[in-house]
């Protein structure tokens, strides 16, 4: 799987990295059980600071997406159903965004369509 970082972007690099790894798992480009490269390796490949990669991995671990296993490194976790705490987190994250959409004139159907569109885009290829 290819990671693309935009150093000039307003989005911090660690966040770009986190988002792309999550999307990569959602797409099926990398799978539960796969190990991510070590912090050092990925930082050297991208020519970025190790702290940046470390921060991203810690965030992924906090979200329950990867597990730091001694010796094997950062391993992607498998999930068959969503846990209540994760559900609440995503609920709270999406709520202001959906509210913003409503304020800007989106109807309920348009919002549902939007969600479907995003899911389809991720599932594609």
């Amino acid at each position: 799987m290819i990671i693309r970082i935009e150093p000039e972007s307003e989005v911090p690099i660690y966040m770009q990295l986190t988002n792309q790894i999550i999307e990569g798992i959602a797409k099926g480009a990398i799978h539960p059980g796969d190990a991510l490269p070590s912090v050092r390796t990925l930082a050297a490949d991208l020519g970025i600071n190790m702290h940046t990669v470390n921060k991203s991995y810690h965030e992924l671990e906090k979200k329950g997406i990867i597990e730091i296993v001694p010796k094997s490194g950062a391993v992607i976790k498998g999930h068959s159903h969503i846990e209540q705490s994760s559900y609440n987190r995503i609920y709270n994250m999406l709520k202001p965004q959906i509210a913003e959409g409503m304020v800007l004139g989106m109807t309920k159907d348009e919002i549902l369509n939007l969600v479907e569109e995003i899911v389809n885009e991720i599932k594609k290829t």
Partner: peptide
């Protein structure tokens, strides 16, 4: 042009 740095997670 937009500047992009790339890495391949499995290249090693």
């Amino acid at each position: 042009l937009k500047q992009v740095a790339a890495a391949d997670l499995t290249v090693h």
